[in-house]
């Protein structure tokens, strides 16, 4: 119990004393996870929308794959991305291993199935005739799709938040492709793991609490932005 209290006090003091390393780690965590979520959204939203609205062969197979992909172990994703980014691997020439970019790539791979599956589910909740009805009121295809997006705004935001939550809290891939290098690729989860293996449990709990605060702040912003227009 002392460890938990200790963690709480350390978290507060790290944050409010303006500890530069903690803030740098927090900022990197935010950037990497938001970037991964954004990439996953760029790939996953069109794919999820296509699954929900389209009628092409392999549609259900894709949906099943996305649903399965939601359970993809981050460590496995990390390993695969690592092997691809190895100097001797097919993408070795870019020198991306142990950089934040590599972490973004791995986390985007983790988040994409989440986005695809939840976007598909979100759009399937809307009446299948919605797009036709919007067109039937004079909407272009693009405006109809935007109206659909607005109609499914809350579940779509939930999809984004789930994706963000999946990547901001994962440690396996971040550790493997990032290498937990101080000042370069150390994020809150890998910092917490390192603190744990160093026996600095209070610090580890502190990082965990900072992570929780960060996720809460992001979700709060998104929720407020999403709920406002009524």
């Amino acid at each position: 119990m002392d460890v938990l209290l200790d963690g709480l006090t350390q978290a507060l003091s790290l944050l409010f004393s303006g500890d530069r390393e903690t803030w740098a780690i927090t900022l990197l965590t935010l950037r990497v996870s938001l970037a991964a979520t954004a990439v996953a959204a760029l790939v996953g939203v069109p794919l999820g929308a296509a699954i929900a609205l389209g009628a092409f062969p392999g549609r259900r197979l894709l949906l099943a794959a996305a649903n399965t992909g939601m359970g993809l172990p981050p460590v496995v994703v990390g390993l695969v991305v690592t092997v691809l980014l190895w100097r001797s691997g097919p993408l070795g020439g870019f020198g991306l291993l142990y950089t934040p970019t590599a972490m973004v790539v791995a986390q985007a791979v983790i988040a994409t199935p989440v986005v695809v599956a939840l976007v598909a589910a979100a759009l399937q909740q809307v009446d299948p005739e919605f797009l036709v009805q919007m067109q039937g009121l004079g909407a272009t295809r693009v405006r109809a799709l935007l109206a659909l997006g607005a109609e499914a705004r809350l579940p779509l935001l939930a999809a984004a938040m789930a994706a963000f939550g999946a990547v901001v809290s994962e440690v396996g891939a971040a550790q493997m492709v990032g290498g937990n290098i101080a000042g370069q690729t150390r994020v809150l989860t890998t910092a917490a793991v390192l603190a744990t293996s160093r026996g600095e449990f209070g610090l580890a709990i502190a990082f965990g609490l900072v992570l929780l605060l960060l996720a809460f702040a992001v979700n709060l912003v998104v929720t407020l932005a999403g709920q406002r227009p009524r």
């Binding site: 954004a38 760029l42 932005a225 227009p229």
Partner: peptide
């Protein structure tokens, strides 16, 4: 609607900024 657009723009901006954090000269 506007909120969704704003959120998307923010995400993309952050995405563009992120790689700069790691690539040291």
């Amino acid at each position: 609607m506007q909120a969704a657009v704003v959120a998307a723009v923010l995400l993309v901006l952050t995405a563009c900024g992120a790689p700069a954090a790691g690539s040291s000269a």
